[in-house]
């Protein structure tokens, strides 16, 4: 249900910015999401957005469209465990990636800047993996007392 609402929001935003073609964007996203999952829906939506010639859009408009994509992303986490923390983690990845892109856009080629920004999730992913290892080793509960005396006499 949250994902459907998010798709609707995305459709409204896309139609407002792109016109009727925004329906196509939302539809492609929805189809990809339903058929293969959220990441494939996001990818399909961005491939479709390229086809709609986003270079003609203002930066604010493009940012609004991307925010609609983020709403779809966040909606996929709403029904899961610790939704706020999960959405915050996804937001951190986006902020980190955006920051890296902003810091490196003058130093690298555009595609290289985007590659570095996109793969910012990799070190974050690894950091969470290490965090989980440490937590697994230190967060174990103490075992309950082990009964050592026989509750019954086997020879009886």
């Amino acid at each position: 249900m949250p994902v459907a609402v998010a798709i609707g929001i995305q459709a409204v935003v896309a139609v407002a910015i792109l016109g009727p073609a925004g329906i196509v964007l939302a539809a492609v996203t929805a189809v990809g999401l339903v058929l293969a999952g959220t990441p494939y829906g996001l990818a399909a939506g961005h491939v479709a957005l390229v086809g709609l010639d986003p270079s003609t859009l203002a930066v604010d408009s493009l940012a609004a469209v991307e925010c609609a994509f983020f709403v779809v992303l966040a909606a996929s986490f709403v029904r899961g465990p610790a939704a706020s923390r999960v959405i915050a983690a996804a937001g951190v990845v986006l902020v980190a990636g955006g920051s890296v892109a902003w810091l490196t856009h003058g130093l690298l080629a555009e595609w290289a800047t985007l590659a570095v920004a996109a793969f910012m999730f990799a070190p974050i992913y690894y950091g969470i993996y290490r965090y989980q290892l440490v937590r697994d080793r230190t967060g174990r509960r103490a075992d309950e007392p082990t009964p050592t005396e026989a509750p019954d006499d086997p020879t009886a």
Partner: peptide
Amino acid sequence: GSPVPGVGALLVGAWLVGRQVAFVEQV
């Protein structure tokens, strides 16, 4: 020659990290 797919890649990576955090919470 468009930055849009790169932003999409960033969103996909964010989704993966989000799922990882969710799994850690589950565990």
